[in-house]
Design a protein around this nucleic acid. Structure first.
Length: 414
RNA sequence: GUGGCUGUAGCUCAGUUGGUUAGAGCACCUGGUUGUGGUCCAGGGGGUCGUCGGUUCAAAUCCGAUCAGCCACCCCA
């Protein structure tokens, strides 16, 4: 019995759930297309190196959350824990620097071996975008605005806020890190165990600790803003101005940091309080150093990824599926004719459902179950007279329609 | 990886201090209607009570382990 359960943290997407997912993915793709982004796919597994090198050797994802295995050639393979590294790798191996700037959209499953909880699974799905080439804040603004539009299109504008911060360039970030470490070292005895570890591995992350005592210490900490050099400051100011110009509401959050090493300058998160502890629904930032670090040509980039499961939980109802016309043959001798009519209607663009067995009552029952708009009833008597009975499932009204007029008559149910 | 809560029919859940054949609603199937759905009425199928082990004359009920789910920490979409 145990073997018939899905693996922990994985889920089947049965029809209703799948519809919600598709709705989220399709609106993301539609919005991305509106911004000139084209969809690509990269493999769901890569050589382990691709992720280990780019995500940062100390990140939690690399150290404890990757699904890594040796394949038969002895190569270490990893199921992708996120999308950007694979896209960057594809950019390099595909020689895409010739077609910059590149606007890419992707969607698909990601894998992280975490303890499941609300909004967190071991196999989950993301939609994401990457804008490669431009190093101007206008690009960041475009990408963030696209995220905001996407969420608005899903009807989530009121439930979600956009938080934004800057990590500055390398110089600014290093300067800030030193100041921050100096500050936190004075509070060594007040910081939580977790934060002491963060202080060593990634000091910026102490900033978003949930521990109450840590928060008190963090409240008095110097902010990134004070450590920004002129270029970084201007970059951030220009970005904010661009966002305002296109009407994207945001909140600056000086404590917002990103978990992955490759980010610089812009970091942003769209969050909600409707999902418990996992409130981040769409997040991203700028990663100018990533592609070079992987061995490619120096190439700037900005992007984000959004969690499809989390968004699907927030969306009220996906659009209803189209209501079909039901074909209802009565008696074996009308089967073939009904089958033919079903195809004619389908080829005319109608959604048609025809069952495989059952008497009139059963078939009407099924018509009702599939929420049919109309039923085309065909008995031997009708067939002899060269017509079918069309029943409007809403009103219950029935009309006899000659075969020759069936297509135009049914057009209203399209 | 750590902690708390939970596991009874396809789904949502009852199940009284351990005590006979484990229940309800919804869903499903059949009939009332030999060519007419949704409503209504009547009937029916379906559970080794997550799994394994223990305590007991007796376990869905108590104990242990294990698996899974949920929630939180951690981390993140």
């Amino acid at each position: 019995m145990v073997s018939l359960q899905p693996v922990r943290g994985t889920h089947d997407l049965l029809v209703d759930d799948k519809r919600r997912h598709v709705h989220v993915e399709e609106t993301a793709r539609a919005i991305a297309a509106r911004y000139g982004f084209e969809e690509i796919s990269t493999p769901i597994f890569e050589f382990t190196e691709v992720f280990a090198r780019t995500l940062g050797e100390t990140s939690d994802i690399v150290t404890k959350e990757m699904y890594t295995f040796d394949d038969k050639s002895g190569e270490s393979i990893t199921l992708r824990p996120e999308g950007t590294a694979g896209v960057a790798r594809a950019f390099i191996s595909g020689g895409l620097q010739q077609s910059l700037p590149l606007k890419l959209f992707y969607r698909g499953p990601m894998f992280r071996r975490e303890r499941p909880q609300k909004g967190r699974q071991r196999q989950f799905h993301q939609v994401g975008v990457e804008l490669l080439g431009p190093d101007k804040p206008m690009a960041d603004a475009e990408v963030i605005a696209m995220g905001a539009d996407f969420l608005a299109e899903l009807g989530l504008a009121g439930k979600i806020v956009c938080e934004i911060n800057t990590l500055g360039d390398t110089e600014s970030r290093n300067a800030y890190r030193d100041i921050l470490v100096g500050y936190f070292n004075d509070f060594h005895d007040r910081l939580s165990e977790d934060s002491l570890i963060r202080l060593k591995k990634n000091p910026l992350r102490v900033l978003d600790s949930k521990d109450e005592e840590d928060k008190a210490v963090v409240a008095g900490a110097p902010t990134m803003a004070d450590s920004l050099n002129d270029a970084s400051r201007r970059f951030f100011d220009d970005l904010l101005a661009s966002l305002e110009a296109v009407g994207v509401a945001y909140e600056i959050n000086h404590k917002l940091v990103r978990g992955l090493d490759y980010y610089c300058h812009t970091a942003f998160e769209f969050t909600t309080d409707a999902l418990g502890a996992q409130g981040t629904v769409l997040a991203g930032g700028r990663y100018d150093g990533l592609i070079k670090q992987m061995g490619g040509p120096p190439t700037a980039g900005v992007g984000w990824a959004a969690g499809v499961e989390r968004l699907a939980m927030l969306v009220d109802e996906p659009p209803a599926r189209p209501r079909p016309v039901a074909l209802v043959p009565v008696g074996a001798d009308t089967q073939d004719k009904a089958f033919t009519i079903a195809f004619e209607l389908r080829r005319a663009g109608l959604t048609v459902d025809m069952g495989y067995s059952g008497n009139l009552k059963k078939r009407m029952n099924r018509a009702n179950k599939v929420n049919a708009v109309a039923a085309v009833i065909l008995g031997s008597e009708e067939m002899e007279r060269g017509l079918a009975t069309v029943r409007d499932m809403e009103s219950g009204e029935q009309t006899e329609v000659p075969f020759s007029e069936l297509l135009p008559h049914m057009a209203r149910y399209r």
